[in-house]
Design a binder for these strands. Structure first.
Lengths: 146, 146
DNA sequence: TATTGTTATACTCTATAACTATA
DNA sequence: TATAGTTATAGAGTATAACAATA
């Protein structure tokens, strides 16, 4: 039984991402947050006052999908939706939200350490450059986020 | 507006995988196959006679989720479901299925070339080793597939 | 009993369209 | 008009539970 897909870096990329995201989901489970929700909170923590749409642009999440997530986080008392510029709502974290954000960042750092520990030491400096190259848009290609 | 997540290799991994999978989806669109479906066909092409469950194990797809996919591929005349060992069905490709499988492999190769072209030449030899390290289970960790 | 196929169900993420509100 | 928020909906992928069929 051999898997021909093991030859393809695209398959390795897909499986690696799926495995590590499942692991991160488990690490975030005690906070009752999905990876997407935790990412949104982390971005708001570093950029208080952004609108839903702007946060979504940074994370490549469409505003239609941001909305129910932000409302959920607001109902849980983590995110505050205040009047902002124009119709935009300025998103900030509540006091409790800032505690949650600290826990999220700690979880992300643990996860990062666990990921890097898998990689042989001589390859570790290549991890970020390789992943950035695989992600980055090529010249002339449309960029949908950031 | 800065994105704190850019520091985390886990985030880079997630975004890279999402971007490349979206690209592969588009490449497979003319065949009217999802990435998962194309992977199933590719595995059957290299391992005729496997059961749904066995193919699923190789791709980390649960048998409950394999079932409707295999039926869909069977209805389209790509996969043949023949009596196998015990209750298991031996999956093989039809003549048309083998033509589709060739197109799938060609698409995968194109996609691989496109991916590698993004990576600076000196980093290319590290791509597969880095991705395998990020995927591979650590010693003592449960392996759910293959 | 263990494995496979099957059905049902639910959750997450993603994508599109369309509507409202406001500068 | 352009941008932001909102709602509805649909398609993928994934996860669990439960049941039938067969060695």
């Amino acid at each position: 039984m051999d898997n021909p897909l093991h030859e393809f870096p695209g398959y390795l990329l897909r499986r690696a991402a799926a495995a590590r995201m499942a692991e991160l989901s488990q690490r975030l489970a005690p906070l009752r947050l999905t990876v997407s929700e935790a990412s949104v909170v982390a971005v708001i923590a570093d950029n208080p006052g952004l609108s839903q749409t702007e946060v979504g642009r940074m994370l490549a999440i469409q505003r239609a999908n941001m909305n129910p997530m932000v409302r959920r986080l607001s109902e849980r008392g983590i995110v505050l939706m205040r009047q902002g510029n124009g119709r935009a709502l300025g998103l900030t974290l509540s006091k409790e939200g800032r505690v949650v954000a600290d826990a999220i960042v700690a979880t992300f750092l643990d996860h990062e350490a666990g990921m890097m520990a898998r990689v042989p030491e001589d390859l570790r400096p290549m991890v970020a450059p390789v992943l950035m190259a695989l992600w980055a848009p090529r010249a002339g290609e449309a960029v949908e986020s950031e």
